[in-house]
Amino acid sequence: MEETKSKNKINSILMQLLPWTIPVALIILWQIAVDVGWITSSFIPSPLSVLANGVSLWKSGELPKNISISLYRALVGFAIGGGLGFILGFLNGVSKVMRALFDTTIQMLRNIPHLALIPVVILVLGIGETAKISLVAIGCLFPMYINTYHGITSVDPHLIEMGKSYGLSKYKLFSKVIFPGALPTILMGVRYALGVMWTTLIVAETVSADSGIGYMSTNAQQFMNMKTIFLCIIIYAILGKLSDFIAKTLENILLDWR
């Protein structure tokens, strides 16, 4: 009995480690390949030298500064775009008049790849923070809109009928029936929007910036500074994974009834 229990525990730990074996193995292989000289370190620097570069950039204050500025742009853009997308999706989901007024326009705009809007955004908003944040916001708006709208309109009509018939107030109907029913789809939108947030930010920061991770990366690219390029790629991977992890855990907490 005791034995099977501890065996199960070991098994579950192994299962949790399993997803990490391939990345870790690849990194080790990569380090060896550079050390032995299979690949030229001026094109592909070794993981350890990338790490050392990261540490020195961190100490010089450059890395914390750029990460925090990127995070600021990302979060504010996400809050504005995601918030707006949610509100629009909500309004169109519950009101037929709003839907008739907005939906066609939004569907049309949605099909424009948002990065194609860069010149327009620069023209209208310039090259300052507003432009970069707006680009991120535009990127986050559509996935949030689509998912909120879709989530709200596809809540089981039987449940809504039940709520109405049981005399729920409009607010109660929304907070206890419609919103929780739409929540899984909305959270999918949040996850997707978080992904778009990072990819848009990289591009926005290459347009004209003198700070941020995207700037660090393009600047390094100009001078073939491969260590910094790889560092930026890794930072993006970590930030992306981290935000995905937050979204996923949020799902687990909010949707614990599933």
Partner: peptide
């Protein structure tokens, strides 16, 4: 709202 319907399907809210 003075009548309560018990539907053929239970129509319970899964998140409550």
């Amino acid at each position: 709202t003075n009548a309560r319907v018990m539907f053929q399907d239970d129509r319970l809210l899964p998140w409550l």
